[in-house]
Amino acid sequence: MPPACWARRWGQAPLSRDRRLRRAALLAGVAITTPAAATLPLASAARTLNPQPQPTWTAAAAAAASIDDLTPARVERFADKHGRTFAVGSDIAGIDLSRYARIVAATIHGDEIERVQVLVATDEQLVDLCGRGAAACYYGADDGSGWGQINVAASDRDIRHSLLHEYGHHLDNQLVGLGRGVRFGQLSCAVGADGSRRWLFARERQSQIVARRRVGCSASTPWRRLLPELFAEDYAYANGIREWELRLFAPPRRATLAALRADLARPFRPRTVVWRGRVAAGGALVRTLALTAPTFLRATAEARRGLRLALSLARRGRRVAGASGSGASERAAALVPAGRYQLSLRSLGGSGAFRVRIELR
């Protein structure tokens, strides 16, 4: 994914799009499947561990950051209070890396902390990595592994804000806000630049960011209006940062922060459910769907010729979407909030086997 950069000096572009963003290919053998979400206790400390059997610096994240020398001169591994480990590295002699590790370990986080590493850079290195005018930046591998690297400057006087903001980008790289191929109003963003699902709709209720076209995620979107930057600042705010930088938006309300925390504890995952069965002539069947987050739902029913079907999606007895009568293939689609829904299939003529593909995206 392109770098997400944090620029406090307004009016300077954080990074030109034609800079090299990453090596052509990540090193082989480093793709890691993202594990299921864990509970997210607030870790409050970091400690140095004994040497670990796994490599201390992950080639995937370093390669994504286009670092010529993949391993800093000095790397230390730290752990949060639950034993989840991460690496902090630097080429700067004598620097206390535990200072940076303590900040990262004290964030609201889960298992994804083991897929991040922090490079503490000189000012010159940071310009090369992030571009002139950026206080920090994040590079995430876009191979689905969830690996990422935070790059900060040792000279940063507001290092906690920078680290928290960039860790927000790391979480964005783990979570689904919209997801691949999903459009919400004018928004269609890649994973890693789309925030998280409940947070996105809570921010929409608070700020009308989509209805009023206030945010985007394309290369042409001004930095101050980028959706991933708003998510990262909201995450920093959730961690106690009150120096609000994005003046175009109000700070997040309690409901928005609660939605963000819910996404961290119970991430939305797109899935597809297949419902198969047989329906009698004139008969009807119902399947209940329990949705825990706003969902783009599409149900497609198929059956043999001669069997005419009707699909209906309802909540609390009120129809939300449906289609009927045109043939043996019917489709119902809707954007629905969290809740319990009843998907009904009815035969308008004929009997036989059917198959309903339910996409929850």
Rank of each mutant, 00 (worst) to 15 (best):
R19W: 11
G185H: 02
S326V: 09
D80P: 10
R102D: 15
R17V: 14
A153P: 03
A59I: 08
C137Y: 04
G140W: 00
N50T: 13
R157Y: 00
Q12R: 13
W275R: 08
H170M: 02
R8Y: 13
R247G: 11
G177L: 05
E229M: 10
R355M: 05
Q149N: 04
T107F: 07
A7N: 12
E330M: 08
A232V: 06
I95P: 03
R77D: 08
E302K: 11
P222E: 07
D69K: 12
F78Q: 09
I67S: 09
I358E: 00
L163H: 00
A353Q: 06
G339M: 02
G192E: 02
D111N: 15
L291F: 10
W57D: 05
A250W: 13
A79C: 10
L42S: 08
L309S: 06
V286E: 13
D172F: 02
A7V: 11
V356I: 10
G327M: 09
T34C: 09
A238N: 03
R331T: 15
F354C: 00
G322W: 02
N173C: 01
T39L: 14
R214L: 15
R346K: 12
A87T: 03
G11K: 10
Q186A: 10
L15F: 12
R225M: 12
V286T: 14
C130N: 04
G216A: 03
A45Q: 15
G185Q: 01
A59Q: 08
Q186I: 09
R17C: 11
G144H: 02
A265S: 15
S324E: 11
R319K: 14
G94M: 12
H82G: 14
L307W: 02
L42P: 12
G325R: 07
E76T: 10
F86S: 00
L311C: 04
G146T: 01
I209F: 01
V336T: 00
I241V: 13
T122P: 06
Y235Q: 06
A301M: 01
R77L: 13
L97C: 07
E233W: 08
G94E: 13
F184G: 00
A135G: 14
G94S: 14
T107D: 10
A61K: 05
